[in-house]
């Protein structure tokens, strides 16, 4: 295994592609339609979105490496349960760490941290990539997909917080630039659940008009 690694530089074109591909062209949310479940409900504010995105990046990177290392040892018949156990343990660790060090954020995320377990992106990538590839490419694949998922989350969180509460990271932007004094009002719809769907819908719209090859047939 070490020999092949020497032949291939750490960031070969192939490996870079593993990272960049899921950003737009093969984005887990807008193209592969995975992992939407746990994502949308926590995007009311930017901060929880960021924490959620980071948690998923960490969990996905680590779980991909673990499964990839164990790929020849895991009995195929119980592989789904093994994967779920690995993910679930990592999620529990993340949850415990958040509760100890980032208490306020962990309160906002509440049950949604637990739902990372059923985040289909993680299961999907473990099954499709990590269980048949070496640790390093698996790690990149995990990070790439999680980042592709994360940026959507952060963009949605940014717009919902900006238009819904007029703030960015809790800093009252709209108030400071004097938008309220000329009669602007916060858009109450943005903080309600359906707004997340609209924002993602718009992201898909923008993305697909720029990449016409992604357009579906109906």
């Amino acid at each position: 295994m070490a020999e092949t690694k020497e032949k291939e530089p750490l960031f070969s074109t192939k490996n870079k592609k593993l990272l960049s591909e899921p950003m737009v062209r093969n984005n887990p949310i807008t193209v592969q339609v995975l992992g939407i479940c746990s994502a949308l409900a926590i995007t009311v504010k930017l901060e929880p979105s960021l924490v959620m995105a980071l948690s998923v990046v960490v969990i996905m990177g680590v779980s991909n490496v673990i499964i990839s290392l164990l790929r020849n040892m895991i009995p195929p018949r119980i592989r789904i349960i093994v994967m779920l156990t690995v993910i679930a343990s990592l999620v529990v660790l993340t949850d415990e760490v958040l509760e100890a060090f980032l208490y306020d954020v962990s309160k906002q995320l509440s049950v949604f941290v637990g739902l990372i377990i059923t985040n289909c992106i993680i299961m999907g990538r473990l099954e499709a990539f990590a269980s048949s590839n070496k640790p390093w490419p698996s790690f990149l694949d995990g990070i790439g997909n999680a980042a592709g998922y994360g940026w959507i989350l952060i963009v949605v969180g940014f717009f919902r917080e900006l238009f819904g509460s007029g703030e960015v990271f809790g800093y009252p932007v709209f108030e400071k630039i004097g938008l309220y004094s000329i009669g602007y009002e916060n858009n109450g719809l943005m903080i309600l659940p359906p707004a997340a769907l609209f924002v993602v819908g718009i992201i898909i719209w923008v993305q697909r008009s720029r990449h016409p090859e992604l357009v579906e047939e109906n």
């Binding site: 156990t85 343990s89 660790l93 415990e96 760490v97 509760e99 100890a100």
Partner: peptide, 22 residues
């Protein structure tokens, strides 16, 4: 199962005081 249970219990026990303090 043994490994996972051991790791999780250890972490939960170590972090418990901090969580309670929060």
């Amino acid at each position: 199962v043994v490994l996972v249970a051991a790791i999780l219990t250890a972490v939960a026990t170590i972090l418990k005081p901090m969580q309670e303090k929060n």
